[in-house]
């Protein structure tokens, strides 16, 4: 699904990713952990094609294609979804309107007709139930005045509607209360399938209690310095990052 080789990237003048290698096969859930400022969000943004994030070396293949050759909206249309660490507010633009535009963009890309209005509402309502969101959120502006936790739920709602092949979820668990964490985890789990891959960026083991990862990676100093199974996350939780950093140094 996703093969990253020796990726170097800079933001502005700052080199953030420094020879990062990562492989995420279809059907798997990978967790990326790492100290603040280590480059986790940068990796997510770089994969999503955010302007200002410049790849200076390396390659990324997504479903066998050269991901880096695609424009950001093409990456999204091709099934790459980024759940933002800080979802932005777009005042006056209906949540449901954005959602529909996004779905139709993906459908158009696949050569399908625009979604029928009734079908669409049925789909959205069903997903909102999964996310335990009130329908009132549909007619509000995108993330406008949403609480931190509501914004995160909204990200997962969008993901469920768009059904991406590769989901990069950047700290979707931060800012969630305990019940919301379960709801979000449940939402993510419904998306798990042999044809999809999910990358979770997180600081905490508790998310991984609900979403069992196949692999756990430690990102530090712009590269993956250690990879392991679910037990690695528990070890990090218990011991912090110093020992990994020291061993890698």
């Amino acid at each position: 699904m996703l093969v990253i080789k020796d990726l170097h990237a800079k933001v502005g003048d700052r080199k953030v990713l420094d020879g990062l290698n990562l492989e995420v096969p279809a059907g798997e859930v990978h967790a990326i952990m790492g100290p603040n400022g280590s480059g986790k969000s940068t990796l997510a943004y770089t994969l999503a094609g955010r302007p200002g994030y410049e790849v200076t070396a390396g390659s990324v293949s997504y479903q066998g294609r050269d991901l880096l050759a695609l424009a950001p909206e093409e990456r999204a249309q091709a099934g790459l979804f980024l759940g933002f660490q800080y979802p932005v507010e777009i005042p006056g633009v209906n949540n449901v309107y954005l959602l529909k535009a996004a779905l139709n963009a993906a459908r158009k890309h696949r050569g399908e007709a625009e979604v029928d209005a009734f079908e669409f509402l049925t789909l959205v309502r069903e997903k909102m139930k999964v996310m335990q969101m009130d329908e009132a959120f549909l007619s509000r502006g995108v993330n406008e005045g949403f609480s931190g936790g509501e914004k995160k739920r909204n990200e997962i709602l969008q993901m469920l509607v768009l059904e991406p092949s590769l989901a990069l979820l950047d700290e979707t668990d931060s800012g969630l209360d305990i019940d919301a964490l379960k709801v979000v985890a449940n939402g993510v789990n419904t998306l798990r399938s042999p044809t999809r891959a999910i990358v979770l960026v997180t600081h905490y083991q508790r998310l991984l209690d609900y979403i069992q990862p196949d692999r756990v990676h430690v990102l530090a100093r712009g590269r993956i310095i250690r990879s392991g199974g679910p037990e690695l996350a528990r070890e990090l939780e218990a011991r912090g990052y110093d020992w990994v950093l020291n061993e890698a140094a």
Binding site: R50, I90, V93, A105
Partner: peptide, 27 residues
């Protein structure tokens, strides 16, 4: 840029995204 990229990341073209944001502004 944040708003624009958010829309792009949802697969919406830049032109549509701008229209959407401007229309939201005028709502």
């Amino acid at each position: 840029e944040d708003q624009l990229f958010y829309c792009l990341q949802r697969g919406i073209s830049e032109e549509d995204a701008v229209n959407m944001i401007v229309n939201g502004f005028c709502k």
